[in-house]
Design a binder for these strands. Structure first.
Length: 847
RNA sequence: GCGGGCGUGGCGAAAUGGUAGACGCAACGGACUUAAAAUCCGUAGGGCCGAAAGGCCUGUGCCGGUUCAAGUCCGGCCGCCCGCACCA
């Protein structure tokens, strides 16, 4: 029996593709283009199953498009800057650069073993000086265009590691590595002015039709647009405080003013009020951890200031500092209307403040309506509000706005939750920010002639803090303006900057400027982007912003970077624990008759639920191991089979074996069939031969449709059906028909199991590469059968089926349906009242 | 709390309002084999009747509705998952 040798075949075909360089993009400028991209990996050292799933999907699409006649760009690169390299340097004494490039080397080998149809000539790493040099140029362009600025900001400062931490790296108020309590520090930092595009980033979401609804929604919420009124209250100390409200209609229900603990006025007051200073300190200790917020009591501190109601100068409101008011949103101060805001209600109840309903639900009596434990946030008519009484909410909002605007005390504003993007990082392994700080001239960009600002290779990692900052010489430069001694900016850019334009650079990785306009025009936007949902906001929003910046600068002429987005599910596996509750690796466990034991012992192992593969739970399978055992095509087939691509998939040994068996089965089908390549198809085929031809063309039709829609699991099922039809075809089927079926099968598996397909194609007598063969086209006459089987129902219950010619007369259909035994029995002599015939679908006889 | 998604055999899942469970995994029976592996053939939602052929009932989380016809559409529950969350 012929055995398929995956290892030998895969090496051989990978070499054959490389020798002919068939995956190079841009070789067919006359063809339509297709840019297929998967989110590039961080070079951690090894590829994992998530990568395999992601890159398999992208590869199938890239190969499918190529076969369909597109000029395909399908590149690969490395998101290579970032903290892990620096940590490795601190912990193991290696150079971050050496560590990173060694990882890239290892991972490139693993990716190549997957047989990906990638144009490797375009490969780059974001830590290549050739890339980050261009990024520095872009940073300066953005700076000159007003899209970059420097400002003081509160940041998470880890006093032990001496660096700023991202929010995600602060766990319960402590640095994730050092365990030290994180401090809030005000530091001067660089920002990208993403909020310039708040409205546009929001509005354009509606046109991203090939993006998952979920991602668009998440971005929408993140941008968080709300319309309201900003207006001021005069204070008894002669000052004034501005508030923002989306409910100015409830202004006559106001009971108090609340300032954020971080409000400038709070700071000013705290300087002379130790009680307030203590209160502010306590608020900061509580922190912003989600759990703390959820359970924290509404706390306030009475400043004993009085605020004058803007619509009634005799009305005074108490001014509190409250722990629930965020400086980051609106103006950092609110007016509290307890009757119509749950949070304000809780606060009012605690401090004995009035709760006056001013919006009365339709049908309720304004005199009777009371607010209990729940604030009323619904629609209604205004009451207890003087000239607003009787108006609905919208009209009341308008009226308050009109009056406050007329009085010069307020204005309609649109608030966004989105904040500018802080890109400074006090770290070594990133793109240096090309700025110079001069005592005389201030902050000056590094002149372009002096770009790139390269990272020093002799940094030390044995000290806490930023290695660039305590490098003995690197930061000392002369000012480009006055020539006096000055200092480099020692911060590096957030690595999300690197990934915000890498897909643009792929269009021409050798361009002496950041973007080769002609190449960008040819390839952009990315037609299909594939990656994990975890980037739904950060990376995908930053890239959308960056594209707009690039457009403003004239580098690109597209509105959106990614025309199509697909977010794939995670790869999961069962978890295992020993008697002591310690996690076990899958290879430490063996299962006999469904009972799990520690391999080589009789120690019972507890099988836990299937969860995302993670090092901490040890439920990981190394792709390399699977490729070694079964080959790349098996692992690729697994990733595409059974589970819809957007859902989580569970890796199982049995499933992998099943895939491997199918690989062997296809190979056997091809090599054990007697086929005569090129034999002429008989003019007339009928019976089983016709059925097989139909099966082939149906498969072409449905697999094509499924791949277009990225429904890989359905495409796989259709391919199984074809394989089953070929197996089941009787001897008498002519070799030409069998050959057509086999060639179809091989072409259809081509994008999914490319090595197996090449071997089979060769076995069928071809000397060409299937990777260069066009995608098959279905004959519509063969896709639609002449004879069809339709179900016959009586009163909606299935009672039989009839085989009938397609396009048969309705009367004929009715007659055959009524003649069925089952129908006669079910009717039991009753006359049908109505017979519904849906052509080619169903007959329903209603009594 | 707000927003979104999902709920179908032992499991992963299919199903333009039109034969529910395609296809795969696991399972079971058989063939081949000294034996095993591999392979091939067959069975299979649940229940009942029948020697069999076959027939009947029931079935897509629960309750109701629309329709000749509902896994699919509408209303109301229940459960699970994800995202956001003191956003004024």
């Amino acid at each position: 029996m012929a055995r398929y040798n995956a290892r030998e075949s895969e090496t051989r075909w990978q070499a054959a593709w490389a020798a002919r360089d068939i995956f190079a993009a841009g070789r067919n400028p006359d063809r339509p283009k297709s840019y297929v991209l998967e989110m590039f990996p961080y070079p951690s050292g090894r590829i994992h199953m998530g990568h395999v799933r992601n890159y398999t999907m992208g590869d199938v699409l890239a190969r499918f498009r190529r076969a369909q006649g597109y000029d395909v760009l399908h590149p690969m690169g490395w998101d290579a800057f970032g903290l892990p390299a620096e940590n490795a340097a601190r912990e193991k004494g290696v150079n971050p650069r050496d560590w990173t490039y060694a990882n890239i080397e290892a991972m490139r080998g693993e990716l190549k073993a997957m047989g990906l149809a990638i144009d490797w000539s375009r490969e780059f790493a974001t830590c290549d000086p050739g890339y980050y040099a261009q990024q520095q140029k872009l940073f300066l362009d953005f700076y000159r265009a007003g899209l970059v600025y420097r400002a003081e900001a509160d940041v998470n400062w880890d006093p032990v590691d001496g660096t700023v931490l991202a929010n995600e790296q602060v766990i319960e108020g402590r640095g994730w590595r050092s365990g030290a309590l994180v401090e809030r520090r005000k530091l001067a930092q660089w920002f990208f002015r993403i909020t310039d595009y708040s409205d546009e980033l929001l509005a354009a979401l509606d046109h991203l039709e090939r993006w998952p609804e979920k991602v668009r929604l998440m971005q929408k919420n993140w941008i968080g647009r709300s319309e309201g009124l900003e207006f001021g209250f005069d204070l008894s100390n002669g000052g004034r405080v501005d508030v923002f409200s989306t409910r100015p209609d409830t202004l006559f229900g106001a009971s108090f003013i609340a300032l954020s603990p971080d409000h400038p006025l709070t700071e000013q007051l705290a300087a002379r009020d130790p009680g307030l200073a203590e209160f502010v300190a306590e608020c900061r200790r509580l922190g912003t951890a989600e759990e703390a917020i959820e359970t924290a009591e509404k706390l306030g501190y009475d400043t004993h200031l009085a605020a004058t109601h803007p619509l009634d100068s005799n009305w005074k409101l108490p001014v509190y500092v409250a722990n629930f008011v965020l400086m980051a949103y609106g103006t950092g101060a609110i007016f509290g209307c307890p009757a119509h805001d749950q949070r304000d209600l809780e606060f009012a109840r605690k401090y004995g403040l009035p709760v006056l309903p001013v919006v009365i639900p339709e049908g309720a009596d304004p005199k009777e309506f009371r607010v209990g434990a729940e604030a009323y946030a619904g629609p209604g008519r205004l009451a207890n509000s003087r000239f607003l009484d009787g108006l609905d909410v919208a009209a009341a909002k308008d009226e308050v706005r009109r009056r406050l605007e007329a009085a010069g005390r307020g204005r309609a504003v649109v608030q966004y939750r989105l904040r500018d993007w802080l890109v400074s990082r006090q770290r070594y392994w990133g793109c240096p920010i090309p700025m110079i700080h001069c005592a005389e001239c201030g902050i000056r960009p590094v002149p372009e002639s002096q770009l790139p600002v390269l990272l020093p290779e002799d940094a030390r990692f044995d000290l806490p803090g930023n290695p660039l900052d305590h490098h003995p010489t690197w930061k000392h430069v002369t000012c480009p303006c006055c020539g006096k001694l000055a200092l480099r900016d020692t911060d590096t850019l957030d690595t999300f900057v690197d990934s915000s334009w890498y897909f643009v650079r792929f269009c021409n990785t050798a361009a002496p400027m950041p973007v080769d306009a002609e190449a960008a025009c040819r390839w952009l936007p990315v037609d299909q982007y594939i990656g994990g949902i975890e980037h739904a906001i950060l990376h995908l929003l930053y890239a959308r912003f960056f594209t707009r910046g690039l457009k403003r600068l004239g580098y690109v002429d597209i509105g959106e970077p990614f025309a199509g987005l697909f977010t794939q599910g995670m790869v999961c596996h069962e978890t295992y624990r020993d008697r002591l509750g310690q996690w076990l690796l899958p290879e430490e466990v063996e299962k006999v008759d469904g009972i799990a034991r520690r391999r080589g012992t009789d120690e019972a192992v507890e099988i836990g639920p299937s969860e995302k593969m993670s090092k901490s739970k040890k439920n990981v399978i190394a792709p390399e191991t699977i490729i070694d055992i079964y080959g790349a095509d098996t692992i690729r087939w697994f990733m595409l089979s059974d589970t819809p691509p957007e859902r989580d998939i569970e890796w199982t040994e049995a499933g992998a074996e099943g895939c491997w068996r199918f690989v062997q089965r296809v190979y056997r089908l091809v090599t054990e069939s007697e086929v005569t390549p090129g034999a002429a198809m008989p003019d007339e085929v009928s019976g089983p031969a016709l059925e097989l031809r139909r099966a082939s063309h149906r498969a072409i039709s449905s697999v094509t449709e499924d791949l277009e829609a990225l429904r890989f699991n359905r495409a796989v099922a259709r391919i199984y059906e074809l394989a089953n039809a070929i197996s089941a075809a009787p001897q008498e089927v002519p070799a030409s028909v069998r050959c057509e079926a086999l060639e179809t099968l091989v072409k259809l598996i081509g994008p999914m199991m490319p090595h197996l397909a090449e071997s089979c194609w060769e076995a069928l007598g071809h000397t060409s590469l299937i990777a260069e063969e066009p995608w098959p086209v279905a004959d519509p006459d063969l896709v639609r059968a002449d004879m069809i089987t339709i179900a016959v129902q009586v009163d909606g219950k299935r009672r039989g089926e009839i085989a009938i010619a397609r396009g048969a007369e309705e009367e004929t259909v009715k007659a055959s349906a009524l003649a069925l035994d089952g129908v006669v029995r079910a009717l039991a002599g009753k006359a049908p009242r109505r017979i519904i015939v849906v052509p080619e679908r169903i007959v329903n006889i209603v009594t």
